[in-house]
């Protein structure tokens, strides 16, 4: 599979969202086509928790519909780890039902140096993927 191409502004937007929601976890979706991210959808964490996220079901439906209408896929799914590393937790793996999407995790463990990493989570297996930062 080709490397995912993403503009820096989407990375920045994920970090900004994580900081805004901290200490709670934030979450959202990266929609796009042909391995290129075209839109970031911020979503509401229905759990309102520092240890759980769950995209509000009605919002998930709307985001999914908009992507379908544009012929986009969920290229990425992102959430934050306010206190821990940017690596999928057992909970993340257990609830990873979108094997074709890249799971982005924003860690705020080191507040001054937020870290963003991307993983493929398929059948319980975690594989870190490189992403290509592209110009607009």
């Amino acid at each position: 599979m080709a490397m995912l191409a993403i503009e820096q502004r989407y990375i920045d937007e994920m970090i900004a969202h994580a900081r805004q929601e901290a200490p709670l976890e934030c979450c959202g979706v990266l929609g796009g086509r042909d391995g290129r991210v075209l839109k970031l959808f911020r979503a509401t964490n229905a759990e309102r928790s520092r240890y759980r996220y769950n995209i509000d079901s009605q919002e998930l439906f709307r985001i999914n519909r908009e992507c379908e209408e544009n012929g986009w896929q969920f290229l990425g799914i992102y959430h934050s780890h306010p206190d821990s590393e940017a690596y999928p937790s057992p909970t993340d793996v257990g609830l990873a039902f979108w094997p074709e999407s890249l799971y982005f995790i924003v860690s705020l463990r080191d507040a001054g140096n937020p870290e963003v990493r991307a993983f493929r989570i398929r059948d319980g297996e975690i594989t870190e993927e490189e992403i290509e930062i592209v110009r607009r």
Binding site: E25, E47, I55, L60, S84, S89, D92, L95
Partner: peptide, 11 residues
């Protein structure tokens, strides 16, 4: 539609 969910564990 499957949920999009997860979350960090205690450090």
């Amino acid at each position: 539609i499957p949920v999009i969910a997860g979350g960090q564990d205690l450090t």
